[in-house]
Design a protein around this nucleic acid. Structure first.
Lengths: 108, 108
DNA sequence: CGGTAGTTCAACCTGACGGTTGAATATGGA
DNA sequence: TCCATATTCAACCGTCAGGTTGAACTACCG
């Protein structure tokens, strides 16, 4: 529906970006620190961070030459909402089916 | 972490595929029926369904020439788990900070 | 001032993804 | 048997995402 959740879902689809978010969940960090654990160039990480930023999942604060990144988990709520809604609809369906067959059994 | 959740996240990243899942949440349907609302070829939808199938999000049962598709929401649980874990870690961090400053305020 | 650290910008390459079209396969019905 | 329906397979194509490298920019420090 929302064009914005498209961006969030796409941002979160990449495993590297999910790992970055996992790391930022343990606290804010600079770009270089975020990049450290990964076996790829700093530039690649910089790009990933920009994607996360555009999705609203990361907030950047500049102090001098250092950029400090912080997790901004709000957009994840939409992801949770969508996924658990599907699960819920499904279980409700199962419940209705259950009820239907129970009723049928009782009548016969 | 899990290579399998990579597949699930990737499957769910595409808006068309999310729409397919939304539709299947209202009940099982044939491939043609699933494709009907979309302004793209049946082949494209067939491909999308295959992706969803490989991610374990859709189960297919063949009866004659018709393939009936059903939502299989189990893999979504991993998505929910990950996303809400991040949210939770974050709020816990905020709580700890809150507690820290409250303590500090009390002492001074 | 000069050098180095932190970060981005720009250009480029490659592979995969999402789509198309046309043919093949298999089942159902007259 | 013949035709239509339901679906996939195979080949192809354009775009874009993720990665690289090299240069630029800005801020700190001797």
């Amino acid at each position: 529906m929302n064009y914005r959740s498209d961006i969030v879902f796409a941002a979160v689809a990449d495993p590297t970006r999910r790992a970055i978010l996992d790391q930022l969940a343990r606290g804010p960090a600079r770009v270089t620190d975020v990049a450290a654990p990964f076996a790829m160039s700093l530039n690649a990480i910089s790009k990933h961070i920009k994607v996360l930023e555009r999705a609203g999942l990361v907030r950047r604060t500049r102090r001098g030459r250092e950029h400090t990144l912080a997790l901004e988990p709000a957009p994840l709520r939409e992801v949770v909402r969508w996924a658990s809604k599907l699960e819920q609809f499904w279980t409700e369906r199962l419940d209705r089916m259950e009820a239907f067959f129970a009723e049928k059994r009782k009548r016969s």
